[in-house]
Amino acid sequence: MHGERKIRVLIAKPGLDSHDRGAKIVARALRDAGMEVIYTGLRQTPEQIVETALQEDVDVIGLSILSGAHNTLFPRIMELLKQKGLTDVLVVAGGIIPDEDVPELEKLGIKGFFGPGTPTDKIVQFIFENAPKRS
């Protein structure tokens, strides 16, 4: 069946933390909203995440992080995305990211931040509204 183009989302857990309940709940919510969600498991390097995004040709990357290493890992991921020419991919983040870190991360091009307690509907809606429109 061909029809409207499905939004493809990569849900990734960069770095060294082993808590993926949140990532899985978000993945499930996006799936239930009709998206195709690629889940890659724990402890991913920025290189792995970006290469996966490239091979899977995703529209959106959701980064889940609770280790506190976002200021190290996120810039590296954004840099690699640029190097590989994946500049139109929407990047959103969830987990524990202190408010004061958000402006710097926004400057890198990360667009949505969804901390603990965010209703999943809000994330779904944000992705529908902000995912790149491709033919």
Partner: peptide
Amino acid sequence: TGGAFLGDR
């Protein structure tokens, strides 16, 4: 829902 969870990777 038409969605999918792709976990083979």
